[in-house]
Amino acid sequence: MKRANPMRQRLAALGLLGIPLLTFPLVGLPGGEWGGVPMAYIYLFGIWSALVLLAAWVAERKAK
């Protein structure tokens, strides 16, 4: 009788975390540039990749 699936809940939590991180006003926050690359570009791809990697970690760790 186990209903709660911890993996699904962790992923959903990641999704809920990602929504504010990837929408305004937070995405409008980073300004300037770093090493010639605009911070907005680095922020978006950084957060996005981090979400993907965390999701991979959560999903594949449980797969074992």
Partner: peptide, 8 residues
């Protein structure tokens, strides 16, 4: 990306 995280 976000939608897929709601895998349930």
């Amino acid at each position: 990306t976000l939608m897929l995280l709601f895998v349930g």
